[in-house]
Design a protein around this nucleic acid. Sequence first.
DNA 1: ATAGGGTTAG
Length: 493
Amino acid sequence: MHQSAFIYHRPPASLLYAQIWPRNRPFCGASAELRELHMGRCLHAVVIKFGFGFNNVIISALIDMYGRNNEPGDSLKLFDEMLEPDFICWTSVISALTRSDLYAEALQLFYFMHRHNGFSPDGYTFGSVLTALGNLGRLKQGKELHAKAITSGFCKDNIFVESSLVDMYAKCGLVDESRSVFDQMEEKNSVSWCALLGGYCQKGAFETVVRLFRKMEVDLYSFGTVLRACAGLSVVKLGKEVHCQYLKRGGWNDVVVESALVYLYAKCGSVDFAYRIFKKMPIRNSITWNSMISGFAQNGRGEEAVRIFNEMIQEGVKPNYISFIGVLFACSHNGLVDEGRKYFISMSMDYGIKAGIEHHSCMVDLLGRAGEIEEAEDLIKNSQFSNDSSLWAALLGACTTSTNTTVAERIAKKMMELRPDYHLSYVLLANVYRAVGRWNDAQKIWNRMQKKGVTKTPGRSWIENNSSSSVSFLVNSNIPGEMYNDEKTHSFN
DNA sequence: ATAGGGTTAG
């Protein structure tokens, strides 16, 4: 008999394995330590032994279990081996991918499900897919899905869909849109609040975050957000209060909160304390490692930053775009020129990561400090950022100590071409001429600068910015009693 | 079976 009713279109094998599985190898070591995963695997065996291997409900639960334990490869394998995955199985596997930060892959499966199997999304699917879109910053598709959620009736009064929408708009940088969805919600919970606060964090409105944090129902999940705000404000004192609350409430081995603590303490100068927390963490992911690398790097401890970077690789965690920013920054600020060159090459050769503007900036800084002005110049010229004024400006700064007039002239002129209003190009070039006794040329540059009306932009000191009264106000007013033990706070629920 | 948190150069 013809079985067309049961034919289901499978996603390409390349999507199921080649692309996804290798990328997640690094997580396996960490997940193996989770007892829940071990239990889950045992249960899986029991399921098969008792002949429930073809029960979609049970398999859905298993797919979800692997997803929650950062084993998206196992989720996919199970899914691929199913004879007739129903719509719920698709949703489970999409959410498993989203949970493991495989957003693009989750989206691919979602569109595949829709196009080839004719399944329409429901509230559950919308939640996961909107999360994926938000993390990828795909505003256009996000809006499309928002419209679809409204027309299909899954939007109104569905706290999952609405919270995901708040999150999606916040992550795409549209805080106002995010706020408007939030305001229209009939019922709000800590997830909705947290999503909104994340948007304010991204905009740099850290004071707002701390203020609102005191008004909302607080769960351990939201500690990550407020710690990010603390780091943004460099208020280590408030961060310590949050840390205490985390421990007091029985928080333990939460990789997100503890990574945020590592970052906060390191950013505020307590690198050794940060390192102690880092050392104690049984499960570390790439963000944890990155926090520690950049923590050492920012505190002038480049060698340790490099050491942590290498340890990360040894432990089987793949360095990403941000890891390389940290390690290159460490190299540039500690004169590790050869290492810097090595890592810059290794980034694309060994890890397939294309160097971005941040990496180029670090390299220009590194080479400039080492006096390798022409090498840095070539690097910029041969990159896709050859007309980026921030890179040329960094190089220009490095020329101050150089006596090579020809090169300095060339760079200053390039900079004048890109940014005619940038005063340092003129100042620097004039200084270079003076250093070699070309007084007339120096004077000409000064005249040209004045004729163009280029003026120095007023500077502001770091101290001035950070001793503003609003920050000290926050620190003093946020005593723990007020933050967490307020009766009203708890009855908010 | 479903939603939210943490890392990014000058």
